[in-house]
Design a protein around this nucleic acid. Sequence first.
DNA 1: AAGGCAATAT
DNA 2: GATATTGCCT
Length: 151
Amino acid sequence: MWQHLVRKALSETPELPQTLEVIGGKKRGREDVDLPKQPLPKNSRLSWTPDLDKQFLSAVNQLGVNSINATPKKILKLMNFPDLTIGQVASHLQKYRKYLKGEIKKSKFSRLSAFQGHDEIPTQQQHLTEIGECDIFFDLSELFPDLVDNL
DNA sequence: AAGGCAATAT
DNA sequence: GATATTGCCT
């Protein structure tokens, strides 16, 4: 639990050195103050805080969402987050794509209606705006042609 | 080797 | 429920 809190705190303060370590030892007297830092237990799980997720989305949007461009390795490199793992990025990417598919299905509008500003809500454009800051609609068409074609 | 993705595990 | 791992596939 506390491990996750430490990671969360670190990820929310990117201006600080983002080293995933913590001061260990007992809290007796003050000799614990300068005990050597210990690496976090390996079993602690990464928490995808909003800030971390923004970094992730930023990297993905730079590359382009389609699977040819947005690859776990490239995303990881762009994020430049210490101790972040390819597996962790890949796992997050998988869920992100799944979420994206869901959003496409929810939207019953064609590419045209999405850009013609119909009053129905929610609109594809609004969904995508929530996902990222930029317009990735056409990237999505390339990612999931089977889903988009029959909209 | 690297990646996608569904199922499964923690 | 979110994250990590696994197995099978391209």
